[in-house]
Structures are given as structure tokens and as C-alpha cells.
Design a protein around this nucleic acid. Sequence first.
RNA 1: GCGGUUGUGGCGGAAUAGGCAGACGCGCACGGUUGAGGGCCGUGUUCGAGAGAGUAUGGGUUCAAGUCCCUUCAACCGCACCA
Length: 824
Amino acid sequence: MADIRYQFDAIEAKWQKYWEERGLFKTSEVPGAEKYYLLEMFPYPSGKLHMGHVRNYSIGDVVARYLKMKGYNVLHPMGWDAFGLPAENAAIQNGIHPNIWTVANIAEMREQLKGLGISYDWDREVATCAPEYYKWMQWIFTRFFEKGLAYKKKNPVNWCPSCETVLANEQVVDGVCDRCGTLVGKKELEQWYLKITDYADRLLADLDKLPGWPAKVKTMQKNWIGKSRGAEVDFPIEGFDEKMRIFTTRPDTLFGVTYMVLAPEHPLVDKLAEGTGQEKAVAEFRHKLQFMSDIDRASASLEKEGVFIGREAVNPLSGVKVPIYIANYVLMDYGTGAIMAVPAHDQRDFDFAVKYGLEIIPVIEPEAEGIDVNNLTEAFEAEGRMINSGDFNGMDNKEAIGKISEFLEKEGIGKRSENFRLRDWLISRQRYWGTPIPMIYCEKCGWNAEKEENLPVLLPTDVEFTGKGESPLTTSKTFRDAVCPVCGGKGERETDTMDTFLDSSWYFLRYCDARNSGQAFSKEKADYWMAVDQYIGGVEHAILHLMYARFFTKFLYDEGYCPVEEPFTNLLTQGMVLKDGKKMSKSVGNVVSPGEIIKKYGADTARLFILFASPPEKELEWSDAGVEGSFRFLNRVFRLACELAEEIKSAPTGFEASGEADREMNYAMNFAIKKVADDISGRFAFNTAISAIMEMVNAIYKYKEVPGRQAGLLKAAVDSLILILSPFTPHICEELWSLTGHGGSLYGESWPACDEAALVLDKVEIVVQINGKIKEKLVVGSGLDSEALAAFVTADEGVSKLISGKTVVKTVAVPGKLVNIVVR
RNA sequence: GCGGUUGUGGCGGAAUAGGCAGACGCGCACGGUUGAGGGCCGUGUUCGAGAGAGUAUGGGUUCAAGUCCCUUCAACCGCACCA
């Protein structure tokens, strides 16, 4: 027969055009069919797809195409996280307007995605930089404002001198800017915040309602929210009216307090030091700290230092007076910015006390021997029995936590309290390419939200990109002028824009109803599609994006717009794509460009390799040889189908698997159909699904050489092969579907049915073990129960020989698997 | 320091609910086809000549352990003076 080559480039172009022209990927809403919302994290339109994208979207596409074949109404959308810094930097460097730059990049990347053959419903495409989108972003912001969850506050904020903008705490990693790696400084600025801390408890508690999320991600979020239980206690200060409020998780150690510490930035510090003669020492210490970077300040290895501020506090339980310090190890932005120090039972306090010769009073002693609490060499942080603690002596310290808290509340000295590590979300950015914050300031009425009918507040175009500290929006001649939405008088617009993380915190809702011009999304559409059944993306978004999206969803749920409290029912965090064991990066020079791979081997090969090389949640090591292997496999499939095409076209439908070889072929076929379905839907094990298909191909190759093989069975096998391979490599499968005599597209075909009966073999090989060691393999009838199996095996000549002369203690028989004979 | 994840051939990986370790692929070797190369096809490929041993380490539970429990080690990730 003629040698037909697998011309992937022509095939892929042909079918991509076919799909697009017929609009096959448009979301269907067939009544009665179950819905499935499948979402992959939308990309920032940098202009070029990288391998991480290819992996992300290939995974999604397998699932989308599979579920489509299973008859679901699948929502599988794509869009662009299109606001952000690179566009603005391009504007500063090259003089191109961010919008032009972004739109061009989107166009390029959209084509690349189409070139991969991903089945997106492009009718629902969104770009966060489009006014039709950010109008509703602004609207959501005004909802937050009306509910008192958006507020403006002057605060020292993280300032990136390179990006010239403020950063959220979450965007500062190890003291440097998350984006550019520049050392982050502090700056006093009035900024907008979202009160995510109001949702801290729910964000934490509802993690338990997400069994479909990786434990790792949930743990990371849990740690990030960082809830601690304890008590706030007021310590009176000698010769001073105001009290010093501290937070502690260890109220049981209250009698062990030997000094107090305020954060150097604490507002009480100056007032307390005044007139004590310590003013100078305090000022010098603070001055010194100012010149220390955040990294050094935050490092646990930093030596603890502090100064006495000249006053004493009174222990409200014991009446004992203790000195008050300021120290570098107490942070203003956690708890109350002040602590009680218990050196005997806290290592940090212990270190400090040793250095400054402060008293160490043990109040808990261990039940076990061996530790002399009166001569500690390090803090005793374990559980034990209360001592030196007045009425609480002798109590178990865990019990004392509750008892002392109760006492504090009864006496009005303190109260039980909870503290979170999570801070409110700083969302103001002094940048151009973001959603304008739709707020107006009026001398009379203060800050108010722009009226809904005036949204969107459009980004002005008459701005200068100077790269200076203030938002470029301030350079517009007209942008600032506004009418106060309350009194109608003269107002002034906010010129800061929003953190782009807001834009991506609700895009999944917009997809449900992407073209709605009157609402962010309709209740009806959100009711139908939400929640996202499966979300797929990189683990680097485990904390920020996913928590912000959960926060938005909860808020919109509370406001009655969104039907669910949690946006993503199941989450798959895909692993990174590595080359030579390292992350692909320009600086290392190990980047493999998807474009080149597609050009050389085609999109199907790229998809197949990426799905086959590793399970999706693990890292994937790029291998050129592996790509060759995937390409080879597709060629093998192509040749097989071409060789059999004519025979299949004229083959009868249906077959009788009468001979041994027929039954083997039939088994292999049905096994693959079942296995691939289970692997895709049950556990995203695309690698093993593909290996099952490879085995099926091997089986067909073998079967076609069998004399007397049946054309009907061959046809069934090849048809099934094409269908079950199609979610992975759709182009070649479409082509082969045509070549083997089927009309039109296989998109919309059903997943082949598995004939369970074909999977039941009449004979099965079982293992015979003696004392757990494999000694023999026997072929037996498959229907045997364990008793019959044991009898059969014991009666076998070879086996009897093995056990002759020994006493059989026990025989364990597992039908279909093995028999283990325990002898002495 | 705290929390999490992971350790299986030369390599990527498989073993899904405790039941034949190494599926599938890569690489490699040999053979066939070919003028040659490539391609394709076939055979072999954990170690060991063999008995046997073998899933990071040492122990345990079990008729049976890569899988469950404990010990130690290593790697990776997250958090890190959070009171």
C-alpha cells in the first residue's frame, strides 16, 4: 500500500480551521445534561506561550474533550489577565501605549492557543483591561465600599523603589519585591484597603469544606491566615493613666512575667519615655532600627536587642512591678504590638533576659524528672504543672489557660481573643495600567463611590509615563475633575489604580455570562454554572490568587449575587516544567519554546509528550528524546490506521470474538476504553491513560497479523482507539476518523462503551507462594472462589512436591490473584 | 526552628483498597529490512554466572509490605522573632 506520511502541519491547520468555522467549541446548554465548569488559570498576555502554559491547557483540554464525549455541558473558557506592569514598562521603554501592546500580545497568544487545538469557547473570552470588564470590577469595588469593606488609611506601606509602587504584604517575599527582586522600603501613604480580615475566620474554616483541594494548598492558606487563640491582657503602667494591652497565647504563664516589651513603632513609646531620662536612649535605638532592612529586621537569627524606656508595668494578677522595654523582636503589626515577656517559658524572651540580666521566674514544672526549672539553660516550653502562680498552683497548665482567662474576664483585666497573621489587603497601586479606583473625594462629603450609571471610570489616554512616584493618572488634564456623587459639588477622583489581583478574583464569574452589558453576571447564569468544578493552574497561586478569589466569592455570596461560597470545588496544581533539573528561564538559557516544538513535531506531539512524561501535579523534566518517542508513537498510530483504512471502511459492524486471539484483542480494547476513562476522570493520570492506549496499539499491531482475524473487530478496535486518543491528540484523530470512513468531525462523538463481559476472562494466571515466596504460577479457571482455588492449587502436582514432608499451617487464597501456603 | 511533600532500574515513571515490583516510554545492545544512513520491524535490557537479593536506612505489624506503624538519613516546597 502507498506510504502515506503523517503530515501534522497540514492536518493540524485543516482541523483547526474546521473547528473554528463550525463553531464546534461553543458552550452547549443541552437541557437535562449535567453541567461541568472546567477552568484553567488565565494567563498574563506577555505575548508568548511558555511550556507551563502548554502543560496547563493541555491538561484542561483532555478533561474538557473527554467530558464533552461523556455528554456534559462543558464550560471551558479562556481570557486574559491583561492589566499589569510589563505593559506599562513597555510603554515607558518603547513609547507604545500599554493598550496597543497588550491587545497585540493577546492576538498573538490567542493564535498560539488555537494552534495547540485547545477547545475553548472563544465567544466568552474576557480581557480584564477591557472597559466592558473593568466596569464591573469597579462596580464590585463600590459594593465593597458601600459595605464598609473598602477603606482608606494612612500607613507605612511596602514601597518598591524600582516598580515605583506600593506592594501588598503578600507581594513582598523575603523583603524584596515579588516582581522585580528589588529591596522593598517603607513609605507613609494614604491607601485603599479591602477588609479581608473580616473574612479570616470563614476563609480558614471553609478550607475544611474543600476535600477536592490538595492538602498542601490548604495548609499553606491555613498558615498564611495564621490564627492563634489566646488572650488580651491590660497591664497598668506606674504613674501613667493609659494601660498597656498585650496579646498572648499563653495566659497560663502570666505569673512568670518579668518584663514587658513594646514594638519600637508603638504609639505609646514616646509618651512613656517622656520625662524618664531614657528619651535619648529610646530615640537612638529607633533611629538605628530605621536603617535596618526588612529582611534583617525579620530574621530569626538577628540578635535580640532593646532598651529600657524608663517605666514599669504592674502585673494585674500578682501586682508585681516589671520594667518596660522596646525591642527589635516585637513587631508592631502583629497582635497589639506589645508583649508580656516570660523568659522561663519562651525562648525569645529567655535570650533577651539572659542578655540584659533580667529575672527568670518558672511557673510551670515538668511532670517528669530531669529538668530543674530553677536553673534553666533554655526556656521550658512544654506542658506541665503550675507553680509560683498563686491560686492556680498545682493545676495542669493547659487547664490553667482556661481558668486564668476566665479570671481575667471576670475581673475585667483582659479577655479571650484570637489573632490572625492575615492583614487587610492593600489594593492601591500608583500605576497606569490597572482598573481605576472609582472613588471621588469631596471636601464636604469625604470619599464616596462613583455612581453606577457613570461607570466605567475610563482610563484616560492623555497621560505621561514618567516612571515617577505618583500615579500617571495625575498627569491627565481632565481625569481628576469629578462631580461629588453625594452633594453634586466639585469632587476629585482617586488617581490610583487597583492591584491586578482584584481583576482575577472574579473572572470565573464573568465567564458564566461574559457578554452581559447590564450586569457583572446574571444570577441565573451564575446559578447554572458555578461553582467551577475543576480549576487547574500553577501552585505559585496557592496563596494569593486563590485566597483573594475565595474572599471575593464569599463577599458576592453574602451580597446575594453569587450562589456559592467557595468558587473552586476541585483544584489541581500542576507541577513545573523543568529542563536539566531547573526551571526554564532565559537567564539559565534552558528555555524550550513551544513554537519550535510545534513547528518541528506538531501540537499533538507536544501535547502527548507533556501529558505522558509525568503525572500532572508533579514536576516534568523536559526530554527531547521523549518528544521523539511521542512523535514516533503518533506515526505508528497513523500508519496503523492508514494500513487498515480500506478494510475498515468495508468491514461489517459488530463481531463475534470467537477465537483466542479475538478474545485477547477484544479484552485489550475494552480494557483500554475503561482504563483511559477512569484515569482521566478519576485521578487525572494522563500518563497511565496514554500508556494504556499504547498497549492497545501494540495489541492491534499484533492482532492484525493473526490469520483469520475479523475485520469487524479490527474496525471496532481502530475506531475505539481513535476515539479514546482524541482528547489527547485531537488533530490526528480527526484526520484518522475521516480516513477510516467516518463523516465529519469526531468532536461530539460519544465515548465508546465498555463491554464489561469482554473483561471477564475464563482463565487466569495465579501465583503460588510458599511462606510468602513465589514458587509457581498456575493457570486456573477464573470463576473459582477461594476455597476451590486452594483445593485446586494444593492438588497440583508441582505444588504437592513443594510442600511434601512439611506441615501446612495455613492456606490463604485470593481469587484471581494468588494462593499462599504457610508451611512448617 | 515549625509545617508539608517526596525517596522505586542508566533515565521519565507504573504498581488505583496490603496480594506477581519495574507496566508504558526513553536510552542502550543485538538481529532483520536497506546500496548506505535514517526510518521501520523483531529480540533483550533491576542486580547477580547462579542460588538468590532487591523499592533511601534500621526496626515492627501481617499468611503477604514499595504500599500500614515507628527510627534514622536525604532532597524539595511553604512559613519563619506571629508573642
